[in-house]
Design a binder for these strands. Structure first.
Lengths: 236, 236
DNA sequence: TAGATTGTTAATCGATTAACAATC
DNA sequence: TAGATTGTTAATCGATTAACAATC
């Protein structure tokens, strides 16, 4: 972490009111589209233009951004690089979040080798496994450590987040251990249900299987769902 | 496909009305929890019990299931194996959906080697790449074909779905080609924006980066979001 | 029959969209 | 100034929850 051990990463503009999950989940999309605008050299963008690019309403864009403050200017729109900087700040890009990956299987290695973390300013500081074949090797510039050394590692290196790609059955136990090591963010690919008595941890579940099945559903029922939504039937 | 080429996989109980996306996305969760109940040997389950296991309201469970018909029985609850069978049917498990994976990179190979598809009754019939090093090899029991032979392959083997794990930049072109080969389901990991003039294709986007960033956000703003929702503040 | 639990209607809640006054 | 576009309030829409009659 960039801060001293007792300093929290956050507490930037901590006076804002409640922000709904729906809004939070759209922030990364804004982040992506702003990067495109920057790459294109655009200096300014209106909610209207973003709207047609992103296929969401201009109204929603203005509402979303206003949850965090007035980032735009009437009559002008939004300054691309300013808005981008603000959104990066909100999303903790450059906050020096440090992550480890638990499980150096196919998925763990695929994630580590991707530019996933680097692109978003997350520092990957270690990969852990129990397989002696893997321990000591390096994947995507990240060293694979023995799970047995997890506690020692965490004592020496502050870690904010653990990416869980280990077998489901071993997950609850390992998560307990990680929490004892003061890790409170979990990117959970295991399918294990993580619920805690104390609300001191944050879990983001990724259920690839669920995603696949929702596609299956829509493939098997093309006339129902979405295309037949009430709005569209009435000739939107 | 199990059916003859002109037969669609679906058209089971095609008389039901509109089902919202929110409901569809919960179906796979029901599928998962029912499997657990089966494994535990439970014959019957009430919306109340499912509710406490799944951490959603019993009311929602009854509403969701009733979108598709009366699967339960008053005073008794739901018969686990019957409900499971119904949900499998809805999700196309056992419908013989056939899939190919485009891109035999880390992610493509990881997906193919997982039990992801098998568990959900999706037949993985091929993996495609342009790398001569990879073509001809076999991963997780699936052969890697040359992208150049895609059209020929599709002409000979009916395919319902393509899993896109190729580079973003090449995706739009490849998707056009796949659509010409009458593939209309896309599980899209590329980050490319897929929008079609004709509404004849179904896209399920997986943005792992977005998922990671929403975790980042919540890690950086623990006091806002979720835990501070209006409901909880009023002492739910 | 009495108890349990669904199916379903009605009430609530929250998220999205529309509208427009403020202002650059 | 006139035109453009935000910030923000009000209206709409949809999803969730509560309540209860139906019924096994």
């Amino acid at each position: 972490m960039l801060q001293s051990k007792n300093d929290s990463i956050l507490q930037s503009g901590a006076d804002h009111t409640y922000v709904s999950d729906a809004v939070i989940r759209r922030l990364p999309r804004y982040f992506r589209y702003l990067r495109i605008l920057i790459r294109e050299g655009k200096m300014r963008v209106s909610s209207g233009e973003l709207s047609s690019r992103m296929h969401i309403t201009a109204s929603q864009i203005r509402q979303d951004l206003n949850c965090f403050g007035g980032f735009g200017q009437q009559g002008y729109g939004y300054n691309v690089s300013y808005l981008y900087a603000k959104i990066c700040e909100l999303l903790g890009v450059g906050a020096g979040i440090r992550a480890i990956v638990i499980g150096a299987g196919d998925l763990g290695r695929a994630l580590v080798r991707s530019s996933m973390f680097e692109k978003r300013g997350v520092d990957l500081v270690g990969l852990f496994d129990i397989d002696p074949e893997l321990i000591g090797r390096t994947v995507g510039g990240v060293k694979i450590y023995d799970m047995q050394n997890l506690d020692t590692f965490c004592a020496e290196n502050p870690v904010d987040m653990a990416v869980l790609t280990l077998p489901k059955s071993e997950t609850p136990e390992v998560v307990d251990q990680l929490r004892k090591n003061r890790i409170h963010g979990f990117w959970n690919f295991t399918g294990a249900d993580l619920h805690f008595a104390e609300e001191d941890s944050i879990v983001e579940d990724v259920h690839l299987g669920d995603s696949l099945m929702s596609l299956n559903y829509r493939l098997c029922h093309p006339d129902l769902s979405e295309s037949e939504s009430p709005k569209k039937r009435n000739g939107e």
